[in-house]
Design a protein around this nucleic acid. Structure first.
Lengths: 120, 120
DNA sequence: CAGGATCCGAAATGATACTG
DNA sequence: CAGTATCATTTCGGATCCTG
């Protein structure tokens, strides 16, 4: 593996723990299509609860991946968007996505085979 | 973002939930350096418990990322290695690692700034 | 050596109800 | 609309003890 030092491994873990939760990447990918309001995001991301969307957005904002813009009106309007840092994360994550799409069948088969020869 | 279809997003999540746990990628990265026995892995990966190493290896084996070879001797010998599928995962994960290394300071600063203006 | 079994605490997630 | 607060549940991870 070219250009990969051992020192990078803890860093990988660090990012994955930030990005590896259930919703963060779905939010980032969704915001990759453009700025969006809270309930808009909620509708687009299937199955996310209000609580989890809030928490996920706070986490992403804290890490500087997402910006939050409040327009004090009635009713209030809050827009979320990717920062430059957030944008820069999209490519490496997409690579992982490509891998997932390319190998999902292989993984599914391996899983089925494993379950068969263990449980059986 | 070129070549990224909406349909890929759930797939990203799927991989991340496989790979995003605390130990899986450390194991994969370690096995990237070559085949290894159980306790060897345990020594190399700082802080992992026996239970978690076992569980992580089982998971990776189930998904076809790692192979397990038992040599029936006394004491028993079990070797773990990456499969071709496991090898193929190293590159996209390394990309994420590169991103992590490149941006860890930026993230740390964003985090500190956020905590300051919230808690303060 | 390479685990399996069991117990426990912590953290993530979800459902629901309420609010400026 | 965009949250906060609370509660229940599930999952994760570590510690410990036991075994072929």
């Amino acid at each position: 593996m070219p250009g990969h030092s051992p020192a990078a491994c803890p860093a990988v873990t660090e990012v994955l723990s930030r990005v590896g939760d259930k919703w963060s990447m779905q939010v980032v990918m969704q915001l990759g299509y453009g700025s969006m309001r809270f309930n808009q995001l909620r509708r687009e991301i299937d199955g996310i609860s209000q609580r989890m969307l809030t928490r996920t957005l706070r986490g992403l904002e804290r890490d500087g991946l997402v910006s939050r813009t409040v327009t004090p009106s009635v009713p209030p309007r809050v827009d979320y968007a990717l920062t430059a840092l957030g944008e820069s994360l999209r490519e490496p994550v997409s690579r992982l996505g490509d891998w997932a799409v390319a190998n999902r069948d292989t993984v599914a088969e391996a899983r089925a085979a494993y379950d068969l020869r263990e449980e059986g």
